Amino acid sequence: MPYITITDGTRIYYTDQGEGRPVLLSHGWPLSSDAWAREIKLIADAGYRAIAHDRRGHGRSSKTYAGNDLDTHVGDLRELVLTLDLTDLTLIGHGAGAGEVVRYAARHGQGRVVSIITVGGVAPLLLQTVTNPDGVPLDALDAMREAVLENASQYWIDLAGPFFGGDRRGATVTRGDSDDLWRQGQNLNLAAAYDGIRAFSETDLTDDLRALEVPVLLAHGADDRIVPSAATSEIAITLLAQGTLTIYPDAPHGIVGAYRRALDDDIIAFLSS
C-alpha cells in the first residue's frame, strides 16, 4: 500500500488510480478514503488520475494523538501534493474534507489547483454564532464529543440515521451503508475523532473562500442535518469569485443512493467543463 511519511514522522496512506489530469479527494468525518471508492473508479474510468488519502488518525494512516486540527491536516495534504508533484489539479472534499481542500487551495494551491468541488462542505463556519444563526450550537457539538468519548462504537451506529437521512424522511438506511460507516468510524483514532469535531466545526474559513480565484462547485443536500446548507454553502457562494451552488432535493449529508448517482454525474461533468 502506498504511504508518504510527513515531516513529523506521521505516515499518510493514499490510493492512486487511473491516468490523466489529477483529481484529489478528501473524505469527511469520521470516514476514510474508502468513502470515495465509487467516485475513485468513476473518475479513473473517465480518464483522470484519482487520488484519495486517509487523514492522520483516520483509516490506515498513523493513529496520532497530536495534530488533529485543520492546519495540520492542510500541511499533510500539501506534503502529499508536493511528493506526487500534482499540477492542473482538481480538489474534491466532503464535509470536513471540504474545509481541508478549501484552506489548502487558498494557502498553497496557486499554480497547482485549477478547480474545487465541495460536497456538504463546512465552509465558511459550521458553528452557530450571532452572525451565523443557522449553524450548529456549541452544546450540540459538545454532546457529540461526549458521545464519542463515552462509546464511539455505539455512536457510529446511532449516527447512521441522521447521517444518511433515514431517521426523518421515512427512508431506510441500508445495512451496507450503516455497517460501512461503523467500520470506517472504528478505524478512526479516538483522539482524532474527538479533536476532529472542533477542527471541522469551529474553524472559520471565510477568508479562505474569499481568496479562491478558481471555479468552485458547491454541492449540498437540502436535507443535510449534519452540516446545514443555510449555515455553510449558501453563505459560501456569496464569498466566491467563481462559484456555483447546487442543492440536491431531499439529499442527506452522507453520499448515498439517488443523491450519489446525481452527484457523480455532476462531478464528471464539472471535470470535463
Rank of each mutant, 00 (worst) to 15 (best):
A46Q: 05
Q17N: 13
R175Y: 12
G243M: 04
A106L: 01
V122A: 00
G165N: 04
Y14R: 02
G99L: 01
N189H: 15
R49G: 09
A236F: 06
D177Y: 09
L138Y: 10
Y14A: 00
R168A: 11
H108V: 01
G93N: 08
Y3R: 10
G95E: 11
S33E: 08
T72K: 07
G170K: 07
L218H: 09
R56Y: 00
G97Y: 05
S229D: 13
H53G: 00
G47H: 07
D264S: 14
A35T: 12
T174P: 11
V81L: 01
M144Y: 13
I51H: 10
V173S: 05
Y65K: 15
N189M: 10
A236W: 13
D134S: 15
Q110V: 02
R60Q: 13
H253C: 08
A258M: 10
V216F: 11
A251R: 07
D264H: 14
R261L: 14
A269K: 15
R169A: 12
A140E: 13
H220A: 03
G47T: 07
G170L: 01
P22I: 01
G109E: 06
P162E: 09
R168D: 12
L271Q: 10
V114C: 11
N187E: 14
N189E: 15
G257A: 07
A143P: 11
L70S: 02
I268E: 03
V114Y: 08
Q154I: 08
D224N: 06
R183K: 13
Q110E: 14
S178A: 15
A35N: 12
D266E: 11
A46L: 05
T83K: 09
I235D: 03
I197L: 12
T10E: 02
P22E: 03
V216N: 04
S62W: 02
D167F: 05
D34L: 13
Y155V: 07
L80Y: 11
Q110Y: 09
H73G: 06
L82F: 00
S115Q: 12
R260N: 13
G18E: 03
R175A: 15
L217V: 02
S32I: 05
G170H: 07
D158Q: 13
P228F: 01
I247E: 06
L82S: 09
S32A: 11
R55I: 02
D88M: 01
R198I: 04
I255H: 04
Y3W: 11
R168Q: 12
F270Q: 00
K63Y: 08
N189T: 08
R38A: 09
R183H: 12
N68S: 08
I92F: 03
Q110K: 15
G20W: 05
T206F: 01
T244F: 02
I92G: 00
T172P: 08
T64N: 07
D180I: 04
A37L: 02
L42P: 04
R11I: 00
